[in-house]
């Protein structure tokens, strides 16, 4: 039995006393690559686009149209779009890195034994949790700014009737459960894909994992989209005060 599965990412080396795990390392690489790439892309923008610029324009424009369709307001869409699209693109890019052939075989020798150099970046719960916290906190901040602090607190603590009090507590639990549901969905899907691939490779090499790889590719596209869309829906719901809360 050579299956080694760990929930936490493996630690590659220590920077002083600060452990650098393989997912952290690769997420920094991806971030730097995306920043430099977009910087060069911005410098080489032409009025008559080339092939690459065309592709990126289709992606960004499609994303923007989708956001505007969901939010239904131009200024709001312009404010939300950068955050949501960055989330989508970062997670999507991280997921695609898994499909570089042969990367899972590379290991390096550390003090704790041989450690795989590469690991699916999103299968690190810490990263997913931080992104979820960004999404949830921005949702709450938008709700406070739009509705005002007293109305925001009044949504959760309402002592006018037992039913409203109960509903307020349920709302509070619902807000807290967003953290769990958003982060577990993304993390679980990617991590499950990794484990499924490993188990199938263990059972019958080369051919049995192929359909699961396609399934994983579908997950790699759909899950970032779901994460970004849910963030978008949460924020646009929080920013929408035209819907009456008292009913």
């Amino acid at each position: 039995m050579s299956l080694n599965i760990s929930l936490s990412p493996e630690i590659l080396f220590y920077l002083g006393t600060w452990p650098i795990s393989n997912t952290f390392f690769w997420s920094v690489v991806v971030t730097v690559f995306l920043i430099i790439g977009s910087f060069f892309l911005r410098r080489s923008l032409r009025l008559i686009p080339g092939k690459f610029q065309n592709m990126i324009e289709i992606l960004v424009e499609g994303g923007y149209d989708f956001v505007e369709g969901v939010v239904g307001d131009k200024t709001k869409a312009k404010r939300i779009f950068p955050l949501v699209f960055t989330m989508f693109f970062f997670i999507f890019f991280c997921n695609l890195l898994v499909y570089i052939p042969g990367q899972s075989a590379v290991t390096i020798q550390t003090a704790g034994g041989a450690v795989p150099l590469f690991r699916a970046i999103i299968s690190d719960y810490g990263l997913v949790f931080m992104m979820t916290m960004i999404s949830v906190l921005i949702t709450q901040i938008v709700a406070i700014v739009v509705a005002g602090p007293w109305k925001y607190i009044g949504k959760f603590i309402n002592l006018r009737s037992p039913l409203k009090c109960f509903l307020g507590i349920m709302d509070l639990i619902g807000e807290l459960a967003k953290v769990m549901s958003l982060s577990f969905r993304l993390f679980g899907n990617i991590f499950a894909g990794e484990i499924l691939g490993a188990v199938m490779l263990f059972l019958f090499p080369f051919f049995l994992p192929l359909p699961f790889l396609f399934l994983g590719l579908l997950t790699a596209v759909v899950q970032p989209f779901v994460f970004a869309v849910l963030t978008l829906v949460f924020i646009s719901m929080a920013s929408d005060i035209s819907v009456p809360e008292e009913a």
Binding site: I5, L7, M180, S181, G188, A192, L218, V222, V226, L230
Partner: peptide
Amino acid sequence: MFVSMAITESTGIYALVVTMIILFA
């Protein structure tokens, strides 16, 4: 359909995460 299926799937994924925590953590 794919998006709604991914959201439907999430409760199963929660169960899977719990299973993984029971088994490996």
